[in-house]
Design a protein around this nucleic acid. Structure first.
Ligand code: MN
Ligand code: MN
Ligand code: ZN
Ligand code: ZN
Lengths: 156, 156
DNA sequence: CTCCTAATTAATAATTATTACCATTTAGGA
DNA sequence: TCCTAAATGGTAATAATTATTAATTAGGAG
């Protein structure tokens, strides 16, 4: 059986259909999905599943390291199957995540931590931007809207 | 005058007392502060300043790279004066941030990005944990509560 | 210095993301 | 087959942030 069945059972958690579905969806996706997206997908199979259940389970599964969280600035948390420890190039538009083979959590960094008596418990490294497709899309859109008047409003 | 006056004026933004106060507070703090914390501090000087104004300005100032955001997982966004580009050891308890002299956004990473036609626009690298003081505090607290029964609930 | 207006503000409503609650159902071991 | 802790669905509640809007103000033109 899949490793996750083990991990759950071993600690007294039950194997429910909703957990199966959630994990299946994550397994079939090559993107990081938001809880909301997972909810929508889930409801295609089993419309009665509550979004609260999705959140509840994503939290549990993350605690057990069965899925992992990705914290995009400018947007809700995204989830994927936990495939070992790694970092990503994340598209801020569509959510695809290209795996990086690199982890910056090494020598230099650990040294500074020790020097400061800092107890490291976690780290994030994410590169944000736009995947090939979305990057292209945006450039076209911008080309479109090149004739607007603008004094000084707020933009990014 | 401070560089930020320049940056704002240059683009037609006004120098308001609330902006002065917000930036002064950030200038006097060695911690990353949340919008809420800044709001409280701000109201000590000028009780009428709205929290919406704090948020509005932090967003503007971040866009102009006058302040920078720090996205702690498990907690609201924190802000500091933008002091060049750098990353931190961030205490998840009290929010102090020890500057790291290292940025992982280099060769290896950029290469992967290029290979994938990925348009990089930003990155995050943060090491989370507990500063010396808070780390100690927690160890004491845990030592205290070492006699609780627990079957299988959810913990982290 | 006085006016004018776009920028900004305070106050508050609205949204978004996530968690808490609770009555009911269910997984899975005895 | 029963029993019970675990889980669920539905929904209310909370936390964080953004939107709206009428009133105020910074700062340049005259
Ligand atoms: Mn890493
Ligand atoms: Mn960097
Ligand atoms: Zn994309
Ligand atoms: Zn601390």
């Amino acid at each position: 059986m899949s490793a996750w069945v083990e991990k759950l059972s071993a600690r007294g958690y039950k194997i429910t259909p909703q957990r199966r579905i959630i994990l299946e969806i994550l397994g079939n996706s090559d993107r990081h999905l938001t809880a909301e997206e997972i909810g929508q997908e889930v409801r295609k199979t089993e419309p009665s599943i509550s979004l609260a259940t999705v959140y509840r389970n994503l939290n549990l599964l993350a605690d057990l390291q069965i899925v992992s969280r990705l914290n995009i600035h400018d947007g809700p948390v995204r989830y994927e199957l936990h495939g070992g420890h790694n970092h990503h190039l994340v598209c801020m538009d569509c959510g695809v995540a290209v795996k990086l083979g690199v982890c910056p959590m090494q020598g230099e960094v650990n040294r500074v931590a020790e020097e400061n008596g800092f107890e490291v418990s976690n780290h994030h490294f994410e590169v944000l931007g736009y995947c090939r497709e979305c990057s292209l899309k945006r450039k076209l859109q911008q080309a479109n809207s090149t004739a607007e008047g603008g004094t000084a409003g707020d933009k990014d």
